[in-house]
């Protein structure tokens, strides 16, 4: 593998990681606030569809992102009503919303565009195009650093830069602000927040709104940046991989970036090099590389390497004790 090939692999890794990263950070807010969210997949899917449809109709990719995020927030609010207000089971609610998204996107898409759930292809400003960073061309010929800058760092869609910029922001919010302190507390011991005079319900809803927005961005990225249309079931399990990455990252933002880059790398490798030949002895089937994120997550969950420690009250509806 030569240097350029290596760079291309990393470049692909970044593109593929963005969706996972945004979804993973979305899950982080929800779960840190004590609400399990296996509905990341559904929120991404509904947002991907709405974003593509609105971008197509309005001709603006940014409007698409906005609308997609709004749709995702609506889903998050349904999850909130079920799990925060009505103490419903959070797993069941998440599963149901995933189903709802797979159904609604196709039903509505089919009703509008008559293309079996697919939206028309986005063109022009309706889709995100790659941004060439300053001097990208100028330094391209400089050895090593040149290609890294012009190939790897430059030339992504705006959402990619937004996603990576959000990581330090999330860290700062979580660990340096009042909101973050209360958010973490409400996921660990909601009674401590309640008795401190802060509303548990309001905190959890606020967290879910952020979850909705981030998930919406992830979904919109899929249909308006990574592709240029919405296709049936286009999230293809990425919401679950993001969830796995969240566990892998032990519910921490910077680690979440690491985990999603790792999982993105695995996806990039399986796309670019389907069957890896190991010294001519045997070849690693592409399915193994694809399954590796899941296998790694199980290993982490098993606690043989590292230990996943979820927020203590995650998944438990808050009821004042009698």
């Amino acid at each position: 593998m030569d240097f350029l090939q290596f760079l291309l692999t990393l470049d692909s890794t970044i593109r593929l990681s963005v969706v996972l990263l945004l979804a993973c950070l979305a899950g982080l807010f929800s779960e840190r606030a004590g609400v399990v969210d296996i509905g990341l997949e559904g929120k991404m899917l509904i947002s991907a569809f709405v974003a593509a449809a609105v971008a197509y109709e309005s001709g603006s990719a940014w409007l698409g992102v906005l609308a997609g995020s709004a749709a995702s927030v609506v889903f998050a609010m349904i999850h909130g009503v079920a799990s925060i207000i009505y103490r419903g089971d959070q797993i069941i609610s998440g599963v149901a919303l995933n189903f709802l998204a797979s159904g609604l996107t196709v039903v509505i898409g089919h009703a509008i565009y008559k293309k079996g759930g697919q939206t028309p292809t986005l063109t022009g400003d309706a889709r995100f195009t790659e941004v060439k960073l300053p001097f990208a061309d100028a330094v391209a010929d400089v050895p090593v650093i040149g290609p890294i800058y012009s190939e790897l760092i430059s030339g992504h869609t705006p959402l990619v830069y937004v996603a990576f910029a959000i990581v330090p922001l999330v860290w700062w919010v979580l660990y340096r602000t009042r909101f973050g302190l209360r958010l973490r507390a409400v996921g660990e011991n909601p009674a401590s927040v309640d008795t401190a005079g802060v509303s548990v319900v309001a905190m959890r809803f606020r967290a879910l709104i952020i979850t909705g927005i981030l998930c919406g961005m992830a979904g919109a990225y899929l249909s308006t940046a990574q592709s240029a249309f919405f296709g049936k079931e286009m999230t293809a399990g990425r919401g679950y991989i993001a969830l796995a990455a969240l566990i892998f990252a032990n519910w921490r933002p910077v680690q979440a970036m690491g985990a999603t880059l790792l999982f993105g790398l695995l996806e990039a490798i399986s796309n670019l090099y389907p069957n890896i030949d190991v010294f001519g002895l045997f070849s690693i089937p592409v399915q193994f590389t694809q399954a590796l994120p899941y296998i790694l997550t199980v290993v982490i969950l098993a606690g043989f390497i590292g230990r996943a420690v979820p927020p203590r009250s995650v998944g438990v509806p808050y009821v004042k004790e009698r």
Binding site: I78, H79, V81, A82, S83, Y86, R87, G88, D89, I92, S93, V95, A96, L97, N98, F99, L100, S102, G103, L104, T105, V106, V107, G109, H110, A111, G116, G117
Partner: peptide, 23 residues
Amino acid sequence: GISREMVFVIQALIIIFTGALVN
């Protein structure tokens, strides 16, 4: 005019109302 996926929508709503929102 109605895609077959309407079935998913109905099933999802059944899960939401009989499961998540039962209370």
